[in-house]
Write a protein that binds this DNA or RNA. Sequence first.
DNA 1: TTTT
DNA 2: TTTT
Lengths: 155, 155, 155, 155
Amino acid sequence: MQMVIALGNLGKDPEVRYSQSGMPVANVSLACSEKWTDKQSGEQVEKTEWLNLVAFGRTAEIMGEYLKKGSKIFIQGKLQTDKYEKDGQTRYSTKVVVKSMQMLGQPSGNGNNGQKHVDRGANQQNSRSAPQPAYAGHSADSGAPDFDFDDDIPF
Amino acid sequence: MQMVIALGNLGKDPEVRYSQSGMPVANVSLACSEKWTDKQSGEQVEKTEWLNLVAFGRTAEIMGEYLKKGSKIFIQGKLQTDKYEKDGQTRYSTKVVVKSMQMLGQPSGNGNNGQKHVDRGANQQNSRSAPQPAYAGHSADSGAPDFDFDDDIPF
Amino acid sequence: MQMVIALGNLGKDPEVRYSQSGMPVANVSLACSEKWTDKQSGEQVEKTEWLNLVAFGRTAEIMGEYLKKGSKIFIQGKLQTDKYEKDGQTRYSTKVVVKSMQMLGQPSGNGNNGQKHVDRGANQQNSRSAPQPAYAGHSADSGAPDFDFDDDIPF
Amino acid sequence: MQMVIALGNLGKDPEVRYSQSGMPVANVSLACSEKWTDKQSGEQVEKTEWLNLVAFGRTAEIMGEYLKKGSKIFIQGKLQTDKYEKDGQTRYSTKVVVKSMQMLGQPSGNGNNGQKHVDRGANQQNSRSAPQPAYAGHSADSGAPDFDFDDDIPF
DNA sequence: TTTT
DNA sequence: TTTT
C-alpha cells in the first residue's frame, strides 16, 4: 500500500486527451512549495517540488473544465513509475495517479480567463464527440464526491 | 476534507452486527502505540491511543471473518462525531469510519483461534440469512481492493 | 501510529492561552466540508464534520497571529482522546493535536480584524511576560518546515 | 505540501553510507503490493510498485541495524525528484525521503542474518569513526517519536 | 511551470 | 483492551 497526498498550484493549464476507448486523461504539473526558516542561518528558505499528476475519467474532465494555470488543488493518489525506452536506453518516469481531487481556489486572476475557458470548452467538445464515449460504464468515478472517502452509508 | 490513517492492533475481537437493511457493521477498537525516548530524561516512553473504528459492507464482513484480538491492521477512514443524549445530557462520540483496511498479520497465536472462528462463522450466517441481503446493490465497496486507491484504469 | 489530515475553515477565531510554563496553546474549531451528488437522487449533498484542534508552541502562536474565523487551513496531526469527569460521569473528548499547519487563505475580510489583532497581541504579551518563557528552548518547532511530526509536548 | 505514506517489504538489504559530514544515509527499495479481484474477470490481481527510499540520520542507522531483505515497514516521507546528467542527457530520479519509519516485522528468517549484521556493524563503526561525527548535534531526529516531519537535511 |  |  502506498499513497500520496499533495497540495499545490498548477504550473500550467491541464492537458486533457482521450484514450482510444474515449476515456478522458488529464496531465497536470503541480508545484508543491514549502517555506521555512533555516535553523542555522535564520533565513527564509523555499523549496518547490514538482509532481506530475495523471487523472482519468470524471476527475480528468473536471480538471479540464475547472482548473487552469495557478489553480490550487489538493489531491490524493498513488505513485506509479513507468519504464520506457528512449534512444536505446531504459528510463523511468514517476507520476502520481490521482484518485481524488479537491479544488481550493483559482489564482487571483489576470484577465484572459474567459478567453481560455471558451477555448477549452470548444476543444473538449470536439474531442469528446469524436471518439464517442465508449467511456460510459466507467462511472465508478463519475458523480463521485471529492474524496474516495465517500459512498455514504445510509443508516 | 479530512482523513485518518492508522496502524495498530485490535484490543479485542471485532463485533459484527447487521443493520435493518442487512448491511454488515463492524465495530473495532484499535490500539495505536508509539514509542520514543524522552529527550530530557532519556527514558523510553510509550503512549497508546485507542481508536473506535466502524466499518460497513464488505469491509465489515472481512473484519468479522479474518480479524481477532491482537490482529494488526492498517486503515484509512474519516472522523465522524455523533451527538447523542444520555441522562439528559448531550454527549459526543468520535469514531473513525473505515474506508479501507489492510491486514498486516495475526498475533503470534494463543491457542483458541479455531474455536473463535467457528463461533463467528456460525453467528454470521445466522444473522445474514435472516434479514436477507437487501444490502446487495451496495457493492460500491464489494470486490474492491484493499485501498480505495484502486479502480485500475485499463490503459 | 495514527494521523489525521484535514483541510477546512475556522468556525471562529482561534483561542490562544498559555500554559503554566509559558507555552502557547491554541484551540481551533475546524469545519471540514464535503460535497457530492447523491447517486440515487442526483441531488447535491453537503456534509460538514467539525474537528477540535489543539496546537502548541510556535504553531499555536502563528494560529493566534494569522488565523481568524473563516480562514482556510490544511493541518496534519494526531488524534487524542482525553478522559475527564463531569457531574460524576466519565466523559471523553477527542481532539486533533496539530503537528503542522499550512495557511490557505483568509476570508475576504469583514472589517474588525485590526481590532482583534490588537486584543490578542496584548493578551499574548501579558501572558508571556508573566510566567517567563520557561518555554524557551522548546523552539524545536519554531522555524520548522511545514511538516513536522515531532516535538512531544510535555503537558 | 506533499507527502507519501507507504507500507511494504524491502526488496533487499538496506544500503547505508555516510556523507562527508558523517551523516548516515540509507537507501532502501520498498515493494508495495496490492491485491484485488478484478470486477469484470473476477480474477485475483496483484500489482507491485517499487519505491526508492532514502533516509538520513538516526532513521538511516536504525534501518541499517534492524532491517533486512523482506522486512515489513511503514514509512512516511516526501517525494523528491533529482535531476542529473547521464550520457549527455537529462534524467530524473524520483525518491521518497523518509521522515519516519515504523518496523512491522522481520521475514521468518533464512540463516545468514547474523552474518550480515556483523558485517554491517563493522562498516558502520569504521565509517563513523573516520569522519568524526560533525553530524552530532543533528539529533533533532534521534530519540524522536515515530512520526516527525522535520529536520531538514542539509545536503 | 505555480502560489503565498 | 492491543502489540513490539
